[in-house]
Structure formats: structure tokens, C-alpha cells
């Protein structure tokens, strides 16, 4: 929206990973539009608070609906939208601080419900918008503006966390590979259930991990990222755990359980079983 709007003055820093994520989300939504014939207005992007949440204002071209609400609460808002209107395509965009720290309590219940949405998490290992404090994915011992003597907690492992909480689709992406990321987001949106696409999206200002992720042969830096092997059985939870034990960061679909019914499906099934009474019948049941 922002292109037409001089009032909106927020900008990502040059080189920010979130640019790549935005492009991937735009492409995935346009592909979906072409595939389904449904209008762009059929998409709702629920955004968290932080650099990444501003993505909802920075999308270019045809505009989806957006919801830019409260820090940490993207998932239950998305739940309300999706439960109310299952025909909508609901996307969550949030950062590691919003999603894993203040919003961490909402992941397990949505995984248990198998809420039929796709959440794209932009992980930069730092709180960017508040200028460089430590986040759940900041490394142990790291010095940041809020950890002058080093971070005291262990670094969270989001992918393992999602797996343990029972998320039914888990993919890992990198903002520097937008074409692949588009594919993962498309797969996540098509998944009938709770899809997590966890993206490494480096912060060039406070935690620039580009080189570390991609590697640099000249400096002798081995890349951290590697592609999930083609023979990985993504329906096998133990194989997914095994994959996550290997050094570095796998990119691709880590785990997918395509058989579990989504919350929408369960709601429909329950509607079929629940007692149906009109307002008048309900009122009459109280008559003396």
C-alpha cells in the first residue's frame, strides 16, 4: 500500500531479509490467485508487531486484507478470522521476538487444533525495531544492547519446537532464496492444517548473518544452510528430528502430516452432530 501513500514513513534498512520474504509472499499469493481464480481480497495477512509486521503495509500490487494488531497475538487473531470465515486464505507474518517470545503461548494450542493457516516467521535473531535487544533465537552468550554481559538463556530451536508441539507442516526457508521460499509458502498455504514456514531473514543492522548462512569460501566460512535431501521422508517425524540434529540449517519441507483433519474440518463435522434449534425453539424451551 505504501507506494501510493506518502504518509506511511516506515522503511526496512537496505539489504534487510524481509524484502525477500515480502517478494516471496507476493508471488505465492499471486500464484494462488491464478490457480484458484479467487480475488486478492480473499487473502488476509495478520501481522505481528516489529520490523517484519510492517510487511502488511509494504505489499505491492493487488492488496489483500490486513490486520496489524497486538504484539504476540497474531495466531489467535488468525484463528478468529479463519474460524469465522473458513473460505478465506489466512496468512500470519511475524518475527522471532513476536512469535516465539511474547506470543509463544499461542503456538501449541493452534498446533493441537490444526488451525488451517500458514504462518511465515521472519527470524533475524534480534529485536530490530527496538534497536537490537536479544530474542529467543539469539545465541547463548551473545552481547546485544540488552545483554551487555552476554545472553543468559539458551538459544531456542524453533523447528524442533514446532515439531514437538505437533505442528502439521513445518518448512524452513531463507530470505536470500526467494524462489524456493515462494514454493514453501505456496505449499504451506495449500496444506490443510497448521503450516509453519520459518525463514532466516537477517537483520543487516543488528545481526547480519548473511555471510554465516550462505558461507564465504574466500574467508573459509562454511555455509550453515543446506537443502533437505530429496530422499527425506517428510511424513516421518523421527526422520524430521534426525534431520534437525545435523549441523547447520536445513532448507525445505521438514515435516508434513497431510492426514490430520484441520480445525475447519472438525468444525464442519461438529456442526453436523450438534443439536439445531431455532431462536424461537430455544426461547420456548424456557417457557413455564
Amino acid at each position: 500500500m505504501s507506494k501510493k501513500n506518502p504518509e506511511y514513513d516506515f522503511k526496512w534498512c537496505p539489504g534487510c531479509g524481509d524484502f525477500g520474504v515480502r517478494r516471496s509472499i507476493e508471488s505465492a499469493m499471486i500464484n494462488r490467485l491464478e490457480e484458484t481464480g479467487l480475488p486478492m481480497e480473499n487473502n488476509v495477512v495478520v501481522a505481528g508487531i516489529g520490523c517484519s509486521g510492517n510487511l502488511v503495509h509494504l505489499l505491492e500490487g493487488a492488496q489483500p486484507y490486513g490486520f496489524h494488531g497486538i504484539h504476540g497475538r497474531t495466531l489467535p487473531v488468525a484463528m478468529g478470522v479463519k474460524m469465522a470465515r473458513p473460505e478465506l486464505n489466512v496468512l500470519v507474518v511475524a518475527g522471532d521476538g513476536d512469535f516465539l517470545s511474547i506470543g509463544g503461548e499461542h503456538i501449541a494450542p493452534q498446533a493441537a487444533r490444526n488451525l488451517n493457516i500458514c504462518a511465515v516467521i521472519m527470524d533475524n535473531g534480534v529485536y530490530g525495531l527496538t534497536k537490537g535487544q536479544s530474542s529467543p533465537t539469539t545465541k547463548l552468550g551473545e552481547i546485544t544492547s540488552s545483554t551487555p554481559y552476554g545472553k543468559m538463556e539458551a538459544e531456542a530451536d524453533p523447528l524442533e519446537l514446532y515439531l514437538t508441539m505437533g505442528v502439521s507442516f513445518i518448512a524452513a526457508g531463507f530470505s536470500g532464496k526467494p524462489r524456493e521460499l515462494t514454493q514453501l509458502i505456496t505449499q504451506g498455504m495449500n496444506h490443510e492444517g497448521f503450516a509453519m514456514v520459518h525463514v532466516q531473514s537477517p537483520c543487516t543492522t543488528y545481526n547480519d548473518t548473511f555471510e554465516m548462512l550462505k558461507g564465504n569460501p574466500k574467508k573459509g566460512i562454511e555455509p550453515l544452510i543446506w537443502d533437505v535431501p530429496e530422499d527425506h521422508d517428510k511424513s516421518d517425524k523421527m526422520a524430521a528430528y534426525a534431520l534437525l540434529q545435523r549441523r547447520g540449517l536445513p532448507l525445505g519441507v521438514i515435516y508434513e502430516d497431510a492426514d490430520r483433519p484441520s480445525l475447519d474440518a472438525r468444525m464442519e463435522e461438529m456442526r453436523g452432530r450438534a443439536r439445531q434449534r431455532t431462536m424461537q425453539e430455544t426461547l420456548d424451551s424456557y417457557e413455564l
Binding site: 495478520v46 487473531v77 474460524m83 499461542h106
Partner: peptide, 17 residues
């Protein structure tokens, strides 16, 4: 739902929709 925070944010989503 799981908490009153989910309750209020859930109805925010539904009201918006």
C-alpha cells in the same frame, strides 16, 4: 479457547471478518 487473551483476540479476528 486457551486463555482470555485468545478469547479477545479471537473475537477481534471474527469481528473483523
Amino acid at each position: 479457547v486457551s486463555s482470555e487473551i485468545e478469547s479477545i483476540t479471537g473475537i477481534l479476528g471474527a469481528g473483523f471478518a
